[in-house]
Design a protein around this nucleic acid. Structure first.
Lengths: 110, 110
DNA sequence: TCGTAATATCGATGCATGTCGATGCAACGC
DNA sequence: GCGTTGCATCGACATGCATCGATATTACGA
């Protein structure tokens, strides 16, 4: 006999990681991580003008990154007068860790 | 006078998230998440042939994703005979969570 | 040694994304 | 009203990346 199998069948995880990948994609940029870190360490909200001043990016690019984070549900923005203030969304960290755990925690399914 | 400030100076996180972004970029793909989930739930290693059989991708594409995960230090591969077996790298989940926490945990630095 | 099977690598292609200048829009002061 | 300022959107451009076919590499069996 030839054809010896490489291994027992094994279980392959089903394809349900689209949402998790979207969330992690929003995270996977150094400038966006820096924005999130600033928001996480600020007790309150942060003005967009502070980001444009601190980041080595032009204003439209900063606005773009804020939009990506907003659409991922990781931050929320609120206009107050001329300025717009951003803050971390509630449970942002927990949602991310849950996405990671959904893939990497060696769990038994029901 | 005009020119009223939008907010007190505030602290902007320094630019040290390049490595974290690289790690998260390796994660931010549904097929790679599925590969990691399979490895996390397998008590032992998994043969490449199982991935090529289970994923809706051609063999070179699977090999590409495994390489990305390998170069990110998330998995390790070992050739045994004709087949190559992959397993989750030690502390993979912890490294990822640490990268997330480095950005999102509201901590005071030393 | 030769053929075959399992992976990895290479080169090309198409799509996604980060970046920027130009412009639009909203809010404020005059 | 008008001008200015802060931010968002648009369009264009370049780069990056996922995907694949073709080919190379490695190991095994006859």
């Amino acid at each position: 006999m030839s054809m010896q199998r490489c291994c027992p069948p094994g279980e392959i995880a089903s394809d349900e990681f689209g949402a998790a990948a979207e969330l992690l994609k929003a995270l996977a940029d150094p400038h966006r991580l820096r924005i999130l870190a600033t928001l996480a360490r600020a007790s309150d909200e942060v003005c967009v003008c502070d980001f444009t001043a601190a980041l080595p990016l032009n204003q439209p690019t900063v606005s773009h990154h804020l939009r990506v984070l907003r659409e991922a549900g990781l931050v929320t923005g609120e206009r107050r007068g001329t300025w717009v203030y951003y803050r971390l969304a509630d449970g942002a960290r927990e949602r991310i860790v849950a996405a990671v755990d959904g893939a990497l925690r060696a769990q038994v399914r029901a």
